[in-house]
Design a protein around this nucleic acid. Structure first.
Length: 765
DNA sequence: TCTAAGTCAAATAAT
DNA sequence: TTGACTTAGA
C-alpha cells in the first residue's frame, strides 16, 4: 500500500514526504508538485502509524486549497478525513472558538464580520461618535485595526506617539467594545482571539500541543506575524518560554514540541501588501532549528523557454533563498511578444490568437488572459462578448457578497442574535418601511445613551419613529417565532418572503436575477451540511465530548462569512479564463496571455513608492510566467484608456530582464525604453480615423481615433523623445503655449518629469 | 423620505 | 470610464 503512495515521486519529493519527525522547510518552486508532497506526507504519516488523523493539524490559506487536499487525501486513505483538523487558518479558528467559546468569552452564536460588514460597522461607529471621516477615512481605520490585530496588538498595546495616532487607537478601542457588545468578530479577531486563549489558558494549550504532534502548513511564505506566532504556540515553541524551559519541558514531556512541516516558495510571495511576511521563512529555520531544508526544483509544468524566462527574471531579485527551476520537457516554443498600438488592439490580438488556438484544438479553458489590475478586463470582455466567445472572469462579486444575499443573511443573523447592530442597521429600512436616516440616528443615540444594542434601544423610543421601528422589531420577533424548529432551508425561505425582500425585488423590473440568487440561497441552505467540519471521530476535549455544536443556522452563517463562494459561474461551458495575476497563483494553463506589460501598470506605479515594491512586482511577474505550460504571450500597449483618459506608456522594464533567445517578437522589436511605435504606425495613429473596435487592424494601420489637437510648438502626445540626461521617454501631457509650453514626459526608470519645451534639449525619436 | 443629479477617486485580495 | 457616495429638491 505504501508502495503505491510513494510511487512516481522524484528523489527530492520522496525525501520530503518521508522525512523523519523533525522540523522541516520545503522550498517548493512553481509547478514542482507542492500540493502532492503535502498531501502525500499526511497520508504517509497516517498510513505508517506515525500519527493518528487526530494528531494532524494542516493549515492552508484558501478554502479551495483545503478542499483540494481533503479530496486528494480521501482518495489516498481509507479513513474519514472530515474530522481532521485540516482547513484554513480562519476556518480552524472558527471551529476552535465555537468549541471553546466560554474560554474565549464569546457567545456561542457569535457572528463573523466580513470586510464589508467591518467597514459598515466602523462607519456606523464613527458617525455615532461624531468623528470626522475626512480626517480619519473609515478605510484607513479598518486597515489600522486589522494591522494591529495581525501584529497581536490590542488597543492598550499600541504605542501612541501623536494625536493622530491617539485617535486611531481610540477608534480601535471603540470598535472593539462595539464588537464585544454585539457579539461579533472580524477575520483578524478569529485568529487573535484563538491565539490569546491558547496563550492564557494553559490546560487548553497543553492539550492541543499534545494532540497535534504534526503541523503542516501550505504557502508558508504568505503567513503574517500573528499566524506565525499562532503556529509557534501550537507547536510548543511559544515565545513565552525561554530556551531552557523549552528543553526542560520537552524532556519531561510536559510540553510536546510538534513536528512542523512548512511548504513555501519565497519567489511566489506576492501578498506582502496585506501583511504577509516572507521573513517568517528565515524565522522558522531559526526558531525551530530546521536542519531539513529541501528544495523542489524540478518543474513539471512549463516548457524550457518559458521556464528560462522566469528564472532569468527572478534572478534580478536580491533577497532570495535561492532556487532554480529546471525541466526535462525540452525548450518548447519561444515566448511571443506583441506590441499593440492601443488596449483595444491588444484585446483584438488576443481574441484572434485565442480563435486560432481553438481552431487548432486547444480547449478554451486552457487559455488564460492575465492582467495586473481588474480594470483591464473590460476591453477583453467586450471583445469576447462581441465575438460570442464564451469566457469566465474571476474576481469581483462573489455569491455571498451580493447585496441581496447580504440582506437576507442580515435577517438570518437577527434570528440568531438580535443585538447584531450591523445586521440590524442593514435591513431596518429594507425594503423601505418609512424608517429613514433620521429615525435610525435617533435610535443610535438612544442605544448609546442606554448602553444597549439598536434592537435593545427600541423599547425606549417614543413618538412616530418609535412606532415604525417597533413594527420592525415585531416583524423580527415574529419571524424568529415562526421559524423555530424548521429545517434550515425552510427558515431561509420563510425570511426571504416574510421580510418583504422577495416582494421588493418582484416589483423591481431588474430584480429577476436577484430573485434567482435568493432562490439559490435557499438551495445552498438545503445542501448545507451543518455538521461538516465539526464531526469528530473521537472527541478529544471536554467541549468536543459535550458535543456542544452551533445550531445549523449559526454554522450556515459562519460558512457564508468564511467562504464567500464562487463568483459568476458560467460553469460547464468551455470558456476562456480571465483573471488578475494574483488570482492565477496556484493555477496553470496550456496558453497564457500576459497583458498590459507597461511601466506604471506592471510594475504598478504605486509599487515604486513602496519598500521592496519592485521586487514584489517582479515576483508577481514570475508567478504570471510560470502559469504557462506550452505557450506564453506577453503584450503591451503604446496607448491605453485609463480612468476615462488615454494614457501613453512605455514597455515594462521587465522585458529587459528576459533572455533574448527565449523571446520571439511578433511586432518589430524596439530598443531602449521607446514606445517602439514605428514612424509609419505613429503617423497612421496620428491621422486617427480609427474604425470602431471589432474591425480594428492591430497590425499597424487603422487604430482607434484619439483626439489630437494640433499644437504650435510641434510636439504632440505620444511623441517619443530623447533627453541628454534622462534618456528616452514619451510625452504624456502638454500644457501652455509659446515659451511657457511644458511637457510631461515619462522617462520610465528615470521617472515622470515636467520639462519646459523652450529649455529642454529634446530630440525626436 | 426618496430620487436624481453631481462629485470624487481610481491596485493586487483570502478569510 | 465606472462606481461609491453626497447633496439638492420633490
Amino acid at each position: 500500500m505504501s508502495d503505491t503512495l510513494l510511487a512516481n515521486l522524484n528523489p527530492e519529493q520522496l525525501a520530503a514526504v518521508t522525512l523523519p519527525d523533525q522540523p522541516a522547510l520545503i522550498l517548493a518552486g512553481a509547478g514542482s508538485g507542492k500540493t502532492r508532497v503535502l498531501t502525500t506526507r499526511i497520508a504517509w504519516l497516517i498510513q505508517t502509524g506515525r500519527v493518528s488523523p487526530q494528531g494532524v493539524l494542516a493549515v492552508t490559506f484558501t478554502n479551495k486549497a483545503a478542499k483540494e487536499m481533503l479530496t486528494r487525501l480521501s482518495a489516498m486513505l481509507p479513513i474519514n478525513v472530515r474530522g481532521m483538523w485540516l482547513g484554513t487558518f480562519h476556518g480552524l479558528c472558527n471551529r476552535f472558538l465555537r468549541l471553546h467559546h466560554r474560554d474565549a468569552g464569546l457567545p456561542q452564536t457569535f457572528q463573523i464580520l466580513d470586510t464589508q460588514d467591518q467597514q459598515s460597522a466602523i462607519k456606523r461607529l464613527m458617525k455615532a461618535n461624531g468623528v470626522d471621516d475626512e480626517k480619519y477615512p473609515p478605510k484607513q481605520v479598518g486597515w489600522f485595526i486589522n494591522n494591529c490585530k495581525e501584529s497581536g496588538l490590542r488597543p492598550g498595546d499600541v504605542e501612541v506617539n501623536d494625536e493622530f495616532n491617539r485617535k486611531y487607537v481610540q477608534l480601535y478601542q471603540l470598535y472593539q467594545d462595539q464588537c464585544e457588545r454585539e457579539g461579533v468578530v472580524d477575520f483578524a479577531e478569529l485568529l487573535l482571539r484563538t491565539y490569546e486563549v491558547l496563550l492564557k489558558n494553559i490546560p487548553l494549550r497543553t492539550h492541543y500541543q499534545h494532540r497535534f504532534s504534526h503541523i503542516l502548513i501550505d504557502e508558508f511564505q504568505d503567513t503574517n506575524t500573528l499566524q506565525y506566532a499562532w503556529l509557534r504556540l501550537l507547536a510548543g515553541q511559544g515565545e513565552y518560554m525561554s530556551d531552557i524551559d523549552r528543553t526542560r519541558a520537552a524532556e519531561s514531556k510536559r510540553i510536546a514540541v510538534a513536528n512542523i512541516f512548512a511548504v513555501g516558495d519565497d519567489d511566489q510571495s506576492i501578498y506582502a501588501f496585506r501583511g504577509a511576511n516572507v521573513g517568517n521563512m528565515d524565522s522558522l529555520v531559526r526558531d525551530f532549528q530546521v536542519r531539513n531544508l529541501i528544495k523542489l526544483e524540478q518543474n513539471y509544468r512549463s516548457h524550457g523557454h518559458i521556464l528560462n524566462s522566469a528564472n532569468a527574471l527572478i534572478k534580478n531579485n536580491a533577497k532570495r533563498l535561492g532556487k532554480e527551476l529546471w525541466t526535462d520537457a525540452g525548450v518548447g516554443e519561444q515566448v511571443r511578444v506583441f506590441e499593440a498600438p492601443s488596449d483595444l488592439a491588444e484585446a483584438q490580438f488576443v481574441l484572434e490568437e485565442v480563435g486560432g488556438l481553438t481552431r487548432d484544438g486547444w480547449p478554451r479553458s486552457q487559455c488564460a488572459i492575465l492582467y495586473r489590475s481588474n480594470a483591464q478586463s473590460r476591453a477583453f470582455e467586450q471583445g469576447l462578448m462581441r465575438h460570442g466567445i464564451p469566457y469566465r472572469v474571476y474576481g469581483g462579486l462573489r455569491f455571498f457578497e451580493r447585496a441581496e444575499i447580504k440582506h437576507a443573511l442580515a435577517y438570518l443573523r437577527l434570528m440568531e442574535n438580535p443585538h447584531d447592530d450591523t445586521a440590524f442597521a442593514r435591513v431596518v429600512n429594507l425594503p423601505t418601511r418609512g424608517i429613514g436616516a433620521r429615525s435610525v440616528e435617533q435610535l443610535q443615540d438612544m442605544a448609546r445613551e442606554r448602553g444597549t444594542s439598536l434592537y435593545g434601544a427600541v423599547a425606549f423610543l417614543a413618538g412616530k419613529a418609535g412606532t415604525s421601528i417597533g413594527a420592525f422589531v415585531k416583524l423580527i420577533d415574529g419571524m424568529r417565532f415562526a421559524t423555530q424548529g424548521l429545517p434550515l432551508h425552510e427558515i431561509v425561505e420563510h425570511i426571504i418572503d416574510a421580510s418583504g425582500l422577495l416582494a421588493m425585488y418582484r416589483a423591481d423590473k431588474e430584480g429577476e436575477e436577484r430573485i434567482e440568487n435568493l432562490e439559490e440561497l435557499v438551495n445552498a441552505a438545503r445542501n448545507f451540511n451543518a455538521e461538516e467540519g465539526y464531526a469528530l471521530d473521537a472527541p478529544a476535549t471536554q467541549a468536543e465530548a459535550e458535543n456542544e455544536l452551533p445550531s445549523p443556522l449559526a454554522a450556515f452563517l459562519s460558512h457564508a462569512s468564511l467562504e464567500a463562494g464562487d463568483n459568476q459561474a458560467q460553469a460547464g461551458e468551455d470558456a476562456v479564463q480571465l483573471m488578475t495575476v494574483h488570482a492565477a497563483k496556484g493555477l496553470e494553463f496550456d496558453a497564457v496571455f500576459l497583458t498590459g506589460l507597461e511601466e506604471g501598470l506592471f510594475p504598478h506605479e504605486n509599487s515604486l513608492k513602496e519598500d521592496g515594491g519592485i521586487e514584489e512586482e517582479r515576483r508577481l511577474m514570475y508567478v504570471a510566467i510560470t502559469r504557462a505550460r506550452k505557450r506564453l504571450y506577453i503584450s503591451f500597449c503604446a496607448s491605453r484608456m485609463m480612468h476615462g483618459q488615454t494614457r501613453y506608456g512605455l514597455k515594462s522594464r521587465f522585458f529587459d530582464e528576459l533572455p533574448e533567445e527565449a523571446l520571439r517578437w511578433l511586432t518589430p522589436k524596439i530598443s531602449g525604453m521607446g514606445t517602439g511605435f514605428s514612424a509609419g504606425m505613429r503617423d497612421a495613429w496620428q491621422r486617427g480615423g480609427g474604425k470602431p473596435f471589432g474591425d480594428a487592424d492591430y497590425g499597424g494601420g487603422a487604430v482607434p481615433a484619439f483626439a489630437k489637437p494640433q499644437t504650435s510648438h510641434g510636439w504632440r502626445l505620444g511623441q517619443g523623445v530623447r533627453h541628454p540626461k534622462f534618456g528616452e521617454g514619451v510625452i504624456v501631457n502638454l500644457e501652455g503655449a509659446g515659451n511657457d509650453a511644458r511637457a510631461q514626459i515619462n522617462f520610465g526608470e528615470a521617472g515622470m518629469k515636467w520639462l519646459a519645451l523652450s529649455v529642454a534639449r529634446l530630440e525626436r525619436v
